[in-house]
């Protein structure tokens, strides 16, 4: 498979292409999970085309979004998600991570965890970032648990970020330093070696961020 920037056991990350727009729009528009997003909104392929083209508009980019694709022989290259480094601070060497796995039937199979480890490997080993943070919308408890398993530490919460069901809900912050990721990565590799089917259901769902339409959380 061409243009791969990082590859793992079952997945690889590659740049998004304009041809991915229809698949992404289909996934977002047919989303079945109502817990992980703050309200589903149908999105046109045209919007994704425009977004994908904009990813290459500036260099160095303020954010990097890449396709998460299967290496599986039965479905080689199938796009099953998007991995994102947003708000990259090239001076302070920090960024925010996000992973979205689509469709919902792919979640709970460890794809999100593997995609996140590939993304962090790219962030720390290729971009030489120093620290990462992530946000999770408070009701998305699966994502919060999964992020903690990956070595992130709780960093606080911002209150009242979104109203839902008649009350205000918070957004949780987590951060991760390079040594912590290296330790968590070793542990994750050991777990995968011991039990290749280990899953990480919480890694797969959008949780927070400016989008309300399934943007990687």
């Amino acid at each position: 498979m061409g243009n791969v920037i990082v590859s793992g056991d079952r997945l690889c990350l590659r740049p998004l292409d304009r041809e991915d727009a229809t698949a992404l729009a289909t996934h977002v528009t047919t989303e079945t999970d109502t817990v992980m997003v703050r309200g589903r909104v149908p999105v046109s392929p045209l919007a994704f085309e425009r977004w994908i083209v904009s990813l290459d508009a500036t260099s160095p980019p303020p954010g990097i979004s890449v396709a998460v694709c299967l290496l599986d022989e039965a479905e080689p290259g199938r796009l099953i998600g998007v991995a994102t480094l947003r708000n990259i601070d090239w001076v302070n060497r920090t960024a925010e991570t996000g992973i979205g796995i689509y469709p919902a039937t792919r979640r709970g199979q460890g794809y999100g965890a593997e995609a996140k480890h590939l993304l962090l490997s790219y962030a720390f080993d290729r971009l030489h970032l120093h620290a990462i943070h992530a946000t999770v919308w408070e009701p998305n408890t699966r994502s919060a648990r999964a992020i903690l398993r990956q070595g992130y530490r709780p960093a606080g919460r911002t209150r009242w970020t979104d109203p839902r069901d008649g009350t205000y809900r918070d957004t949780l912050f987590f951060d991760l330093l390079r040594p912590e990721w290296e330790a968590a990565h070793r542990e994750w590799r050991a777990r995968r070696s011991a039990a290749p089917t280990v899953t990480d259901a919480g890694m797969t769902a959008p949780a927070s961020g400016p989008s309300r339409t399934g943007e990687p959380a």
Binding site: H130, H133, R153
Partner: peptide
């Protein structure tokens, strides 16, 4: 009041410091 502390998110000559988010509710 202080709400979030992102460790070592700011580079300084010779080291790094944390990035804090202070907030107030409406």
């Amino acid at each position: 009041t202080s709400a979030v502390r992102l460790r070592e998110h700011v580079a300084r000559p010779g080291g790094r410091v944390d990035l804090l988010r202070y907030e107030i509710l409406g």
